[in-house]
Amino acid sequence: MGHLMLAISISLALIWADGRYAIVEYARSTLHAVLSPVQLFVNTPFELADWLDEGTTSRSELLQENALLRDKVMILESQLQRSVALETENIQLRNLLGAVKRSDEKRLVAEVLSVDSDPFSHLVTLNRGRLNGVFKGQPVLDSRGVIGQVVHTSELVCQVLLLTDRVHSIPVRVSRNGVRAIAVGTGKLDEMVLQHVPDTADIIVGDILITSGLGQRFPDGYPVAEVVSIHRDPGKAFADIVLRPIAQLERIKQVLLLWPNIPSELRADEMNNATANEQEGEL
């Protein structure tokens, strides 16, 4: 009985202190460091299957894929040329207005481990951890848009809460006119809702919502969700607005971790690599 009372007191103290004191977060990441080898072990067969799959792809398939990817790179590069011009123009305009300059961002590709967790929450585990500089609250994207944020880190892995989790909210604005709102997860992988939007707000079906940069967690301007339906009931204070996340949350495999306000070395590196390759090519 004494043991039970002690165990209950420890648990209640932990529950109360969780999120209040750094020591609990430290305890959690220590426990996670013990648990993460098991998670990596569970992931191994799936990684092996991927590897075998890659290893047995035929030459013609590879060539085909390669051609497709080349085309895609070509198109993306041509778009990048324009965006570089736009970016410089944007910086100049911002200078003229005296507005704060937008800073560049460092990115890192991470893979989602094939590990399940609670069916009632939308949580994924990534194969990057504190050793890679991952921090709590870090924004995570896929190639289309925001997918969520890092909630816990350990040395080797980190846990990411998806946008659609019941307890996740993200400040957004409508890209068309800048109307601000908060998008909240519903517990379904393809659905979010906008909270506390007045009936008269100028939002229409098909509007794209992007991060507003408020809340200091997600940087400004990344696509989050699309409006799929609006229900305005005169009897209610707020409109019911249903959204669909733009990122493909049900099939995420590779994601990007973002370091806002840390200038990326990517461009400089790429330039160097490109010139180095050219030189090799010449030789």
Partner: peptide, 20 residues
Amino acid sequence: LFIDVQLNYPLGCHGLAMSI
């Protein structure tokens, strides 16, 4: 406590239930 970490519950929830 390990389950709490795995499922992202506040630390101690499963701990309490498991102790009982």
